Amino acid sequence: MAQEMAMQELAPEILVHVFEALSSATDIVNLSLTCRYFHTLLPSSQKLVLFYNAIDQTMGPADEIIQLLTSNDNQLLHIKRTPPLSYTLLTQIAQIGRVGQRFVNLYPTIKWAGDRSANRRSLNKDEARRLRRAVYRFWMYSQAFYNSSSYRSLRSEVALYERLQLLRSWSTSDLHDFEDFRGILEHLVATELCPTDGDVFSRHPEESRYGMHAWHRSGRQVVDLGSMFPDTFHTHRREDCVADSNKLSIQELRHKHMQGWGSDLDSFYLVQAFLKLTPVQLLWLFDHAVSKADVEQYVEKQTNDICFLESGSSLFQDWVTVLHQRGGDVQQVREAIWDGVGGIAVD
């Protein structure tokens, strides 16, 4: 009868291969903590590489996150930066990666909504990676040109050159994926954060008919979010913000209490202004904002600019410019994405 061999009795070379085969940073940590021998088997530098590779597989492309984290005023954004790996950098990469993964989970509910909900499915590994790449690139663009006081925001000629150079450094297929994600954010903002008066009327026809929106009749007080603004990554939901929070989700509360932001034309321009925010800021609003006042307070606190919503993002126009320069048909590409036959995932 064959005698069983304890795992720690395997040759070190085999155990190293076991560590390298793990695709989750959590699994690597758990195996390392199994016993002292496993904990000391690999040097810290080798474990660092394993952690990086695991995060790249589950939250990557990790290199795109590094480009986001290391962007600065003294170097052109499209020039690749290769800082030395460290556990501090790895922690920051994982933090950004969790935001990317949230959009992987949200994408199907937005992409395949309404009449297309029958096509809804989870993204496969390749699609999820392409979506996360678009998230990190959108984040870098917004952070560099709209969420800092750097020269990029102040010197328009330099900013235009750098914006276009950044988009030119991406492949055409990446540009298609990028527009798909931008469209997802556009839909999220238009339906959740700044619905039109008509959208609100359709949600609450009886209240609107009497000229009194449900917001006014509910007696709900504006939530004080001031103490929560500094931490952009804060995701704890304040379930005590309204009396019926234990019955309804944040999204349900928002549909019940959110006021309209004007006509369809007003909403169009507002959506373009909201797209100057980073993905994590938009995600925070999606997770927490219930009323129009909540949204306005958050935007003002994050940007320190009371006129922030009066001008739109230049991102779409930059995208159009680069695609035209490559001979692409903008309308054809966008229609393919809308029809579910192009972009990150197809129906």
Rank of each mutant, 00 (worst) to 15 (best):
A243H: 11
E239Y: 15
S227C: 11
S218M: 15
K247C: 02
H216L: 15
R220Y: 07
R217K: 07
R237L: 14
S245K: 09
G226I: 02
V223G: 05
H213E: 11
R238W: 04
G226H: 04
R217N: 05
E239T: 14
E239V: 11
E252D: 12
N246Q: 11
D224I: 04
H236C: 01
K247N: 01
H236A: 06
W215N: 01
K247D: 02
L253C: 06
I250F: 04
F229H: 09
Q251N: 05
A243M: 14
K247T: 00
T232I: 05
F229E: 02
A243N: 07
L248H: 03
L225R: 09
G219H: 01
H234L: 13
G219R: 02
S218L: 12
V242E: 04
T235R: 11
H234R: 13
M228C: 04
R237I: 14
E239W: 15
A214T: 12
A243P: 05
R254F: 08
F229W: 05
G219Q: 01
K247P: 00
G226V: 02
F229S: 03
D224T: 04
N246L: 13
R254P: 08
T235H: 03
S227W: 15
E239Q: 10
H213F: 10
D231H: 00
V223Q: 02
T235F: 04
M228H: 09
D224R: 12
E252P: 05
